[in-house]
Amino acid sequence: MTLLAQYALTGVVTGCFLILATIGFSLTRQVEGFLNIAHAEMLGVSAFITWGLNAVAGWPFLPSAAVAVVATAFLGLAIGRVVYDPMRRLGPAVLLITSVGVAYVMAGVMHAIIGTGIRSLDMPLATSYKAFGLRITDYQMVVVALAAATGISLALFLNRTKTGLAIRAMSSNPELAASRGIDVRQTSRATWLIASGLAGLAGVMLALIATLSTDIAFNQILQILAVAILAGLGSLYSVIAAGLIVGIAMDMSVYWIPAGYRPLIAFLVVILALLVRPQGLSGKARS
């Protein structure tokens, strides 16, 4: 029973990471209107910038992480402006396929610069804490805390600030938002910055809790997609629930079946959910 509880706890940590990784993806989907497959590559970029500054250049962790997040945010903005903006009129399906091309380019560049092999950050080993027979490491706690902080600050941002409200307006009805005087281009730029910055943050977390290799990003996109579909492509708050459900389901399944099936469980949950509720957890009608 303790073992099962332990898996559930690990699942919560996985879920928190997935929330961080998926929120930016969902935000892009809502405001820009397409599924950005290259989002996962942004996680990889950020993770490897952190690694490069920390393990190769010898910087301390926090400044490396900060630089990585900011750099990723601006890289995302640049890609959005150069690649996706001129193509928006071609519709979401073409943009979705285009983002596969972007993912190819980014993966290729990372591969050329970094090469294959496994890396890890220059950090002290995680310290394990024990309570009620359950173990959790300090890095895992950082992930949970950061996911919570991000969720709260994003909710505050979207509900209280002018840019946040503009983003919400754009996501629910772009034409109406534009006709009511919202600066569509500026809002779109803000969205790219935030979504990519969040990907950057998730990438740093990835560097912290996992060993890094250049194909890591691709493994993440599968889980990000799973969480995003389960949440329904229409809501941010349901991402939190969906992330936790997928995370806990994946990690608890290890109790009964081999660990190799974890990704399969993620998609099994999604397919079951889609069969019952084709619009995802949020249950909002698709426009």
Partner: peptide
């Protein structure tokens, strides 16, 4: 890696 990059760029340009 270069193959991936060129393929990706071609793909984007054509789309």
């Amino acid at each position: 890696a270069g193959e991936d990059i060129v393929t990706g760029i071609l793909f984007i340009l054509i789309l």
